[in-house]
Design a protein around this nucleic acid. Sequence first.
DNA 1: ACACAATACTTCGTGATATGATGTATTACA
DNA 2: TGTAATACATCATATCACGAAGTATTGTGT
Lengths: 106, 106
Amino acid sequence: MDIQLKRGMLDVCVLAAIKDGESYGYKIIKDMSPYITLSESTLYTILKRLENAQMLTVRSAEHGGRLRKYYQITNKGRERIEEFKSEWREVMVMYQFVSKEDSGYD
Amino acid sequence: MDIQLKRGMLDVCVLAAIKDGESYGYKIIKDMSPYITLSESTLYTILKRLENAQMLTVRSAEHGGRLRKYYQITNKGRERIEEFKSEWREVMVMYQFVSKEDSGYD
DNA sequence: ACACAATACTTCGTGATATGATGTATTACA
DNA sequence: TGTAATACATCATATCACGAAGTATTGTGT
C-alpha cells in the first residue's frame, strides 16, 4: 500500500488500538497486523508522538524479567479519534471526486 | 483539514481533474476548489511530479498574450487512478478499524 | 493615468512523518 | 548452543504539502 495514503491515519489507528484498554508496543503491532501493517520503528515513533501530544499516558512495568511500557489513551486521545471521524467526510469528498465517472454533461 | 490526511490523494485528484480533457494550472485549482482546496505552490509541485512520472504530458501555448501550460493525462495516469481505487479498499479497512465500536466481546 | 484584482506560472525553505537499518537485551525452545 | 520470539530505541533518509515571495500580463474601476 502506498505509504503516503497511510499518513494521517496511522496515529489514529494506534489510538484506536488502545481505546478499549491499555496495551504495549509489541502487542499493538500484533493486534493491528490483520488490518494494518506497520513496522516497529514506525510504531514507537508514533507512540512517542502521541505521548508528547498528551493523547496517551505511559507506565513502565516489569513483565517476565522484561520491561514493558503500557500505553493508555487519554480524553484528548479520544477527542482526536472523534475529530478524525469528522474529517473523514472531507476525505470521502476527495475520493468521490476521483472515482466519479464523466457524466457527459457539464 | 489535516495536511497529512490529504497525502497520497492530491496527486490522484489532480489526475482526476484532467481526465475528461486537457486543462491548465489555474483552471485546475478553480475546478477543484468546491471540493478540494490546494495552493498554487502545491499544485505546480504536483504537476511537475506527475510529469516526471509520465502520468501526464504538457504543451505550452499562448493565450491572450500569456503563456499557458496545458496538461493532458496519459494512459499511465489513468492506470494510477485505477490503482488508487484498488488501494482504497485498504484505506477503508483502516477507517473501519478506527471507527468500529467496542463489541464488548473478546 | 493609476491602483488593484485577477490570471498564470515559478522557486525556495520548512515541517511533518513513515520506514529501513541497526542496536540492545531477555526469554523460550529445539 | 544457537535461533526465534519478545520488547524497546535511535538514526538517517525520502517524500511531500504548504506559505512566502517573486515575475509578468490583462482587465477593471475611478
